[in-house]
């Protein structure tokens, strides 16, 4: 009983899930991207009436919080948390898609999360991140079938929509997120999230 209370009151360091540090950093990243998500809305709508789905190429920006947060924190659940948090921030800022933003966020986060989970959260190469971006795009398409009737578009239009969205998400949420995280690693802030490697211990033993 006593042991359980101590563990219950522990600072979450022993729990398998996310630590408070992970959560806060993920959410701060999500807040930064949430503001970008809100600004991205009008941009998307201005491009959209052109009709050739040019807007789909920039759709991928709405998946970047999930993949980028995972590249920084690299723990299970981070991608979903970041996407949901970024979506709720843009909803709280009065997103023009309203509450639907939240559910798109959940599905996009889950889409990316599944891919990271398949690789057991150990692989964060540019390929896996691009795959996760495609996963997020797939998540958003699931909701689009119900909410946007995209299957009722003419076939060429519908194929173009999916093609450009997938392509755009690979470029933005995949490759761009990866290069951004690489540049961030140079600043050294991500080191606190990496467990000490064998090389670090060897460095200690050297005299």
């Amino acid at each position: 009983m006593a042991a359980e209370t101590v563990q219950g009151q522990g600072q979450g360091t022993r729990s398998r899930g996310l630590k408070l540090t992970d959560i806060l950093v993920t959410i701060v990243i999500a807040v930064v991207f949430g503001i970008i998500y809100k600004v991205w809305g009008p941009m998307y709508d201005v491009v959209k009436p052109l009709g050739v789905h040019a807007e789909q190429t920039i759709y991928g920006m709405w998946f970047i919080a999930g993949t980028f947060a995972f590249l920084v924190v690299r723990k299970p659940g981070v991608a979903v948390l970041a996407e949901v948090a970024a979506a709720s921030i843009s909803a709280l800022l009065g997103s023009e898609w309203g509450i639907s933003t939240l559910y798109y966020g959940v599905l996009q986060g889950l889409g990316a999360e599944i891919i990271f989970a398949i690789f057991l959260y150990r692989n964060a190469s540019v390929w896996v991140v691009s795959l996760a971006a495609i996963g997020a795009a797939a998540g958003s398409l699931v909701l689009d079938f119900g909410y946007g009737y995209i299957e009722s578009l003419s076939t060429w239009n519908y194929t173009l929509l999916i093609g450009l969205r997938v392509l755009g998400s690979i470029v933005i949420a995949g490759i761009f997120a990866y290069s951004l995280s690489k540049a961030l690693e140079l600043t050294g802030v991500t080191k606190v999230f990496r467990p000490a490697s064998k090389k670090d211990y060897e460095a200690l033993n050297r005299v």
């Binding site: 009151q9 522990g10 979450g12 959410i27 701060v28 930064v32």
Partner: peptide, 24 residues
């Protein structure tokens, strides 16, 4: 981003010290 992450990390450490992470 780098500044935000650093700051978030510091705040998180302070919050953990104040017991915000507990499940009690």
């Amino acid at each position: 981003l780098a500044q935000s992450i650093r700051r978030a990390h510091r705040i998180a450490v302070a919050m953990e010290a104040k017991g915000f992470a507990g499940r009690a």
